[in-house]
Design a protein around this nucleic acid. Structure first.
Lengths: 191, 191
DNA sequence: AAACATACGGAACACGGTTCCGTTTTCCAA
DNA sequence: TTGGAAAACGGAACCGTGTTCCGTATGTTT
């Protein structure tokens, strides 16, 4: 049954659009100040709206996080192929790209933690990040392994998971996520 | 028979000791069933005590976790020197020991996550695990680097942090903590 | 301007950790 | 054996967060 509802019954209300952008800005600010787990009420207060409005626009926290960081993720994804053409070797491109990803993660307090929460609400976050970045990573891995620089058959999804995990707690003074990621990259090398 | 004791103010009450062991058993069971973040009320109910009793015996969740897993951590710590004498090379000993640690972590749902929480309540957990295991790891690292098998100056604390992080979410079907840890171990190798 | 869909606000609820205090149990000493 | 102080207990009450719900307000269309 094709219930062809009338094409575009009505456009989105102006206040709704205003609130959405206000929320995005408020959330970005709150994330910087308190990490991606900033209390819902705080974000609402910053945006000058009620909590209900948040849930109406972004049903889960993951939706909000995705919306806030979407363009940065896009930039990271697009950097992959670019690096492949500008780098000396595929392995160098892979290394640079991973460092780019790490830089992104470690500057978002709590993002790495959230990324790997098995809470159902974070499915969206998981899905978006992985859908967007895993193929890029896979392409880089493939190029490097074709060039014989790294071990074959490394799974991009597992690698991304692992890199993400290594970035957890990156702001702790006695931890060094980049060093650990460097070990992983070295470990990928064919010996 | 009167028990042999010097003039202590008073010995611990019998019900108190009973409750403590009951609590330990209940917590162990709850941890297996629901992970180390099992609700306090659940643990209390399993042990047949009130929630206040938990807090009296184990002021923070970390205290409870430490108490439950203490002997396993001890075993892991003691395995370090042993492996060093029985293994072919220091690097092999290091690898075996790390895998031992990983096995311990991945079978305790949520432990790895808890390990790296920056919540103040988990200071105890952090402190105990690291105080006990980092020196062992350092000894193994030192032996391997003295033998020229791995890169020098690797910090044991950072390595333990990283390994712990890699174990987060180890029960997810599309992740492989052991594989990632293997990459790190390979990355340690001098090339 | 009236009518109606859309969106809003925030009170109310759910849930888990933590505290507090009146009551109960244990132990010691007389 | 027993009186009573100290130790320990239980769980109600409290707090902070996420989430839902519905009466009200706002924007849009005719």
């Amino acid at each position: 049954m094709t219930d062809t509802q009338s094409g575009a019954p009505r456009k989105q209300r102006a206040d709704s659009r205003r609130n959405e952008t206000a929320l995005l800005e408020a959330a970005a600010a709150a994330f910087v100040a308190s990490g991606v787990n900033a209390p819902v009420r705080d974000i609402a207060a910053r945006a000058g709206v009620g909590v209900g409005t948040i849930y109406r626009h972004f049903p889960t926290r993951a939706d909000l996080i995705v919306a806030v960081y979407r363009h940065q993720v896009e930039a990271c994804a697009e950097a992959g192929p670019a690096l492949l053409t500008t780098s000396a070797t595929p392995h160098a491109a892979l290394a640079s790209w991973i460092h780019l990803f790490v830089d992104f993660l470690v500057t978002k307090h709590g993002l790495a933690e959230a990324m790997r929460s098995d809470d159902a609400a974070f499915q969206t976050l998981h899905a978006y990040f992985l859908d967007r970045l895993v193929p890029v990573c896979a392409e880089l891995l493939d190029a490097a392994s074709t060039a014989g620089e790294i071990i074959p058959d490394m799974d991009a999804l597992v690698l991304m998971h692992g890199i993400g995990n290594l970035c957890i707690g990156a702001d702790s003074p006695d931890y060094d996520a980049r060093l650990m990621v460097g070990l992983v990259i070295a470990g990928l090398r064919r010996r």
